[in-house]
């Protein structure tokens, strides 16, 4: 537990991409949302675009706080409504690269209708859905992605509902690009976000993340590092475009792989309502 001191710094090279005056952020030790924010700003830097060309929109919840930490035009909206808010910006200013960062409960439960319709339209957005399998901000309630059998404050005997498998849902709804990585796969995650920014159309990246304070503790997963170890041991790179059953996640069955990968990347005409002056 000791060693020699590294060089002590007071700022990080990426601080200019962040609202560094708000750091340290509010997220718990071992939570992966900060890692997703990090991957986002790293991709933003790699995009080569001016910060003023980027916008970040979030909904409500722990992941919904992401927008508040990035130094671009950023909007922390109401629960579930990040996607239509982002649509408004993306349609009105098609030159902007609008990224939505929000959670599984926000995007897939209360905002689920907006999710499938944004994918159906192929709205030119990059959507990073941080999936921590529960409602973290409100104290660990079951959500639309909670694996069957997992324990939550609103499912003390275990979740009975079948979860959404978000990459499968969004692919079926018509997205152009679909990936799933975990916050352990930082390079792949960052690269997927960057491809989403560079691609026109609805690009969806699910980022599996530990939630040690709520999901992890309730399900005996241990701390954030322990949940990361689950990902390290069980994640397998998928071939092609797996379906619901293959992508379904069971955190208790250690024999089942958790499939990750870039599942879909196709060219589809991005959404842009007719709006040119035809006179």
């Amino acid at each position: 537990m000791s060693g020699s001191a590294p060089i002590i710094a007071s700022t990080h090279p990426n601080d200019g991409l962040l609202r560094a005056d708000r750091f340290p952020h509010i997220l718990c030790p071992g939570c992966g949302i900060g890692t997703v924010i990090h991957c986002y700003v790293d991709a933003m830097a790699a995009s080569g675009l001016a910060l003023s060309d980027h916008a970040c929109v979030s909904g409500i919840g722990c992941s919904g706080r992401a927008a508040g930490y990035v130094n671009v035009d950023s909007y922390h909206t109401t629960h579930g409504r990040a996607l239509p808010f982002a649509l408004g910006i993306a349609v009105y200013k098609p030159g902007m690269r609008v990224t939505v960062i929000s959670g599984d409960g926000d995007l897939a439960a209360i905002g689920g209708n907006h999710l499938i319709h944004a994918a159906r339209r192929n709205v030119d957005l990059t959507v990073i859905c941080i999936n921590n399998f529960n409602y973290g901000m409100t104290g660990g309630q079951a959500g639309p992605t909670s694996p069957r059998g997992s324990v939550a404050s609103t499912a003390p005997e275990g979740v009975h509902d079948r979860p959404f498998v978000l990459p499968d849902l969004v692919r079926a709804a018509g997205a152009s690009m679909v990936s799933r990585w975990t916050v352990l796969h930082v390079r792949q995650l960052r690269d997927a976000i960057l491809r989403g920014m560079q691609k026109r159309g609805f690009c969806f990246i699910e980022a599996l993340s530990p939630c040690p304070t709520n999901f992890g503790r309730a399900n005996d997963l241990g701390d954030g590092m322990a949940e990361m170890e689950v990902y390290r041991e069980r994640c397998e790179l998928a071939d092609g475009t797996p379906g619901y059953d293959a992508l379904d996640i069971d955190l208790t069955d250690h024999t089942r792989p958790i499939l990750v990968g870039d599942f879909l990347d196709i060219e589809r005409t991005p959404y842009q309502p007719v709006g040119e002056h035809t006179a």
Binding site: V57, T77, R81, L83, P84, F85, L87, G88, H114
Partner: peptide
Amino acid sequence: MEDELGSAVAIIGASAA
């Protein structure tokens, strides 16, 4: 839009831009 929830928020987003 897909519903009135989305309609109201989409116009706020566009107005923000």
